[in-house]
Amino acid sequence: MTIKVDHIHGERITVSAGGVDLLSYVYRPDPEPYESRKPYVHPLRTLSGRLVSGYRPNDHRWHKGLQMTASHLSGQNFWGGHSYLGPDQGYRRVPERVGSMRHDGFAGLTATDERLTLAEDLTWVANDGAEWAGERRGLTVHAVDEAAGSWALDWSIRLTNLRDEPLRFGSPTTAGREMAGYTGLQWRGPRDLTGGTVFGPDGPDGPDGAEGQEALMGTQGPWLAFSGTHDDVDAASTLVFAHAPENLDPERAVHGSHWFVRSTPIPTVAFSWAFFEEFALPPGDAFAFRYRVLVADGAWDRERVASALAELSW
Rank of each mutant, 00 (worst) to 15 (best):
Thr183Cys: 13
Thr160Asp: 01
Asp164Ile: 00
Thr194Val: 14
Leu224Trp: 01
Ala225Ser: 04
Leu216His: 07
His142Gly: 13
Thr238Cys: 09
Pro190Asp: 05
Thr173Trp: 11
Thr140Val: 15
Gly203Lys: 12
Leu139Cys: 09
Ser237Met: 03
Asp145Cys: 12
Glu178Arg: 11
Gly181Glu: 06
Gly203Trp: 09
Ala235Cys: 09
Val233His: 02
Phe199Cys: 08
Pro190Leu: 04
Ser156Phe: 01
Asn161Val: 03
Val144Phe: 06
Pro166Tyr: 11
Ala148Asp: 07
Thr183Ile: 04
Gly138Pro: 04
Trp151Cys: 05
Asp234Trp: 08
Ala236Pro: 09
Ala225Ile: 00
Arg191Cys: 01
Ala175Pro: 00
Ala236Ile: 08
Ala235Val: 02
Arg191Val: 09
Asp208Gly: 14
Ala143Gln: 14
Gly209Ala: 15
Trp151Met: 10
Glu178Cys: 11
Pro207Phe: 15
Glu131Gln: 15
Leu216Arg: 10
Arg137Trp: 08
Asp202Pro: 02
Gly221Leu: 07
Arg188Leu: 04
Glu211His: 12
Tyr182Thr: 11
Ala143Ile: 05
Arg136Ala: 13
Thr183Met: 07
Leu216Tyr: 06
Leu159Gln: 08
Val233Glu: 00
Asp234Leu: 00
Met217Phe: 05
Ala180His: 14
Arg137Thr: 12
Leu185Phe: 13
Pro190Tyr: 03
Phe226His: 10
Thr140Leu: 11
Gly200Val: 12
Leu162Ser: 00
Ser171Leu: 07
Ala133Glu: 03
Val141Ile: 15
Gly212Asp: 10
Arg168His: 06
Glu146Gly: 06
Glu146Gln: 15
Ser156His: 11
Phe241Gly: 04
Arg188Gly: 10
Asp208Ala: 12
Ala225Gly: 03
Gly209Lys: 12
Glu178Asn: 09
Trp223Phe: 07
